[in-house]
Computed example of a mutant assay.
Amino acid sequence: MLIIFSNKISFSLFKYLVKLINEYYVYQKLVFLLNSLNKIVFLVWLNIIENPHIL
């Protein structure tokens, strides 16, 4: 299944994902990925691909 997001939605999603790996939030222990090293945290079939020229 292919899902294409608009610019605003994709920006919000990526902003959230970047926040998850931000060192400040990890240091403050505010992320759910804190103890997830070498673990699968998203569904195996989930792939995030950036292709701005698809449309």
Results as ranks from 00 to 15, higher is better:
Y16H: 05
L55P: 09
N38F: 10
F11P: 08
F14R: 11
L30I: 02
N22G: 04
S10N: 13
P52T: 07
L34K: 03
K19C: 00
S6H: 15
V31K: 01
V26W: 04
K29I: 01
Y16I: 05
L17V: 04
F14P: 04
F32L: 04
L37A: 07
V26H: 04
N35T: 06
Y16M: 07
V41N: 02
N38K: 10
I49N: 10
F42M: 07
N47P: 07
F42N: 04
I3G: 11
L55V: 11
V26L: 07
S12I: 10
L46S: 05
M1V: 15
S10Y: 15
L17T: 02
I21R: 03
L46D: 09
M1A: 13
L17K: 00
L13D: 06
F14N: 09
V31Y: 00
N47R: 10
K15F: 07
L43C: 11
N7F: 13
V26R: 05
L17P: 00
I4E: 12
L2T: 14
N35P: 04
S6T: 13
L34N: 08
L34F: 00
L34S: 07
N47K: 14
W45V: 14
Y16K: 06
F5T: 15
E23S: 06
L30M: 02
I21G: 02
I49E: 08
S10T: 12
F11L: 12
K8A: 15
F5Q: 11
I48E: 07
E50C: 08
S10Q: 13
I9E: 15
L55Q: 11
N38T: 09
E23K: 05
K8C: 09
V26G: 02
F42R: 04
S6G: 13
V26I: 07
L30V: 01
S6A: 10
V44A: 13
K19N: 03
K19I: 04
V41G: 03
S6I: 09
Y27A: 02
F5I: 13
Y24M: 07
L13Y: 09
I4Q: 14
V31E: 00
L43G: 11
K8I: 08
L13I: 11
K15Y: 05
F14G: 05
L37H: 10
Y24C: 01
K15P: 01
L34D: 00
L46G: 09
L13G: 08
I9W: 10
N7T: 15
I9N: 13
F14Q: 10
I4G: 10
H53I: 12
I21L: 03
L30R: 05
S12V: 09
F14W: 12
I54C: 12
N7G: 15
L46C: 08
K39Q: 08
K19T: 00
P52E: 08
F32T: 00
N35C: 06
F11S: 09
I21S: 05
N51G: 11
W45R: 12
K15C: 07
V44L: 10
I49M: 08
L34W: 01
L33S: 06
L17Y: 00
S6C: 15
L43V: 11
F5L: 15
L2A: 15
Y25P: 06
K8G: 10
N38G: 10
L55F: 12
N22S: 03
L17I: 04
Y16P: 01
N51P: 10
V26C: 01
N35I: 05
N51V: 14
K19S: 01
V31S: 03
Y24H: 02
I48D: 05
V31A: 02
L37R: 09
E23D: 01
N51L: 15
Y27V: 02
V18F: 14
